[in-house]
Every structure is written in C-alpha cells, then in structure tokens.
C-alpha cells in the first residue's frame, strides 16, 4: 500500500501519517492491519488526548476484545489502570471498511504534472487515442432512454457471461 492509499484509508492527510508513524517508530508500515489499529487509536486520541502510543496499545486491546458480539466494548486504558474507556469498535470499523471499499473500487492515483494543453482538436485527439468515433456518432443518433437500455442490455450480457464462466469453472 502506498502512503497516499494508506492516508485515504485512515481519512487523514499524508503528513499526519508520516508524523504519527515516525513517533510510533513504525515508519513505512502501510498495512491494512496498521490502518485498522490506527483508526481506533486516532479516535481514542482525539476524544481523550491520551498520547498516540498509548492509544495504539489501547486499540490493540480493543480489537482483541469480543467486539463482534456487542458493538461497544469497554477496555482498560492500560493493563494496570483503574480507568476504562468504552469504544464503539463496530462503528469505527464500519467507517474503516467504507473507506476501504472506496479505496479498492474508485481510488486511483492522480496524473502527475500539469494538464497537457492540446494543440489538436478533440475529434483528432480521440482518433489518435484509438476511439471509434462511429460508435459515438451512432449513439448520438439515439435517445437517452435508448442509450440507457442499451447499457442495461450490455450489463445483462456481461453478467450472463460471468455466470457461465463461474459455472464452467465449478464443473
């Protein structure tokens, strides 16, 4: 996982990740497991101002607790501490998984550098790229309803092919 992806997974700026991991002596550990722990540690740190190292230790204990059975878990702040904290682990993990889904499904690195200024027209650029303009011209002759129905039919076909593939693989 890259720094950009890791930051996105946590919902923070890359600078926060760099500073926090350095303070925790965990430079460059951009793993899903670390992100899951940091999600809880960050929430604890924000709510209580407990230092990140202790918050991370707390997060490890909270994730070991049987949180699946009940959404909120109460965990001691430190092993020998009288104080305990109740954390909605299920909710925090839900937010984490929402970001994980978004990261896997729609995140992609941004193109670097300045956007290119095109010296040729849009149609020429499309042809140079290899796009079939006749398909677009054909589409423009249809109504919006026809285009969406065509897309639906393509989707149905593609799902049918995938189903057939799965059946073939399982036999």
């Amino acid at each position: 996982m890259t720094l950009a992806e890791f930051s996105r997974l946590l919902g923070v700026r890359p600078k926060w990740v760099l500073n926090t991991l350095r303070a925790l002596n965990a430079d460059g550990r951009y793993t899903t497991e670390m992100a899951r722990h940091l999600t809880i540690a960050r929430a604890v740190h924000a709510a209580t101002a407990v230092p990140m190292a202790e918050s991370l230790a707390f997060a490890r204990r909270a994730l070991r607790a049987p949180w699946a059975a009940s959404s909120r878990v109460t965990v001691q702040l430190a092993d020998d501490d009288d104080a305990a904290l109740t954390v909605d682990v299920y909710r925090l993990l839900s937010s984490f998984h929402v970001r994980q889904a978004e990261l896997r499904e729609s995140f992609a690195p941004r193109a670097r550098g300045r956007p290119r200024t095109r010296r040729i027209g849009a149609l020429r650029a499309a042809e140079d790229w290899g796009l079939d303009l006749s398909l677009i011209r054909d589409n423009l002759g249809k109504t919006a309803a026809e285009r969406i129905r065509q897309l639906d039919a393509m989707g149905q076909f593609s799902r049918g092919v995938r189903r057939a593939d799965r059946r073939a693989l399982s036999t």
């Binding site: 992609a108 690195p109 956007p115 849009a122 499309a126 790229w129 796009l131 303009l133 011209r137 423009l140």
Partner: peptide
C-alpha cells in the same frame, strides 16, 4: 485527473465536439 479517466475525458470531449 485520475490516469484511468484520461480515455473517458477524451471521449467526452469528442462527444462535445460532435
């Protein structure tokens, strides 16, 4: 400005031109 959107952008600009 995702790399994967570049082709899409080229197509949309072609549609606008058409």
């Amino acid at each position: 400005r995702r790399k994967k959107d570049l082709e899409h952008l080229i197509e949309l600009e072609a549609i606008l031109a058409l």
